[in-house]
């Protein structure tokens, strides 16, 4: 799947203390307070991912994310290091989002301008090239519209690949589908 889509800049979960996610998981099992570090690492990226999955309101995103972290905490011992923690938590988030849509009987609407706040800042910035900002918003809307016309399974893969910068293996682990299906 080769698409000429600009990859949005990612806020990759960065640890200040260089402690791996896997170590934090082990530490959290013995000390609940360590879970804060995992929450703070993944709060923003997952919030943005939920937006891209089509969860429109901030309240809904917060509710879903809260459930995600509760589930992560409850099931920490299920985490297997054959999988990256990042893929595991994204999978839980994706499943929670799908449960949310099923309960609401709503169809997810793809939204890619998750960096809206940074664009607003750019517009406020007098030195910034506002026409470039407008062009970016426009292209984002066009891509959103195009993606909305695809089937859900294609959209899920494209969002993870081009907007969340995930590898094929990671997409396979997040969506729990074989790698061949992701390629196809």
């Amino acid at each position: 799947m080769r698409m000429n889509i600009r990859r949005h800049q990612q806020e990759q979960p960065v640890s200040k203390s260089d402690v791996s996610d896997e170590t934090l998981v082990v530490n959290t099992i013995s000390d609940k307070k360590q879970f804060v570090r995992l929450i703070e690492r993944y709060e923003k990226p997952l919030f943005r991912y939920l937006y891209r999955c089509g969860v429109a309101t901030q309240e809904d995103r917060e509710d879903i994310l809260q459930n995600v972290f509760m589930n992560v905490y409850k099931n920490l011992q299920q985490f297997d290091i054959r999988l990256s923690f990042s893929s595991w938590i994204y999978r839980i988030t994706y499943n929670e989002a799908m449960t949310f849509f099923r309960k609401k009987k709503a169809r997810p609407e793809i939204r890619l301008d998750a960096n809206l706040e940074s664009w607003i800042d750019l517009v406020r910035d007098e030195t910034a090239d506002t026409s470039a900002v407008a062009r970016e918003r426009l292209s984002s809307e066009i891509i959103s519209q195009e993606l909305s016309q695809l089937t859900k399974s294609y959209r899920d893969i494209l969002v993870l690949r081009f907007f969340e910068d995930r590898s094929y293996r990671e997409i396979s682990d997040i969506l729990t589908i074989p790698m061949g299906t992701v390629y196809f």
């Binding site: 609940k32 307070k33 360590q34 879970f35 804060v36 570090r37 929450i39 703070e40 709060e43 917060e62 994310l65 809260q66 972290f69 509760m70 905490y73």
Partner: peptide
């Protein structure tokens, strides 16, 4: 370890 964001505090409180 102190939760910096209100969201993290909320999750920990709920747990």
């Amino acid at each position: 370890i102190i939760a910096k964001t209100p969201f993290a505090k909320k999750v920990l409180r709920k747990i």
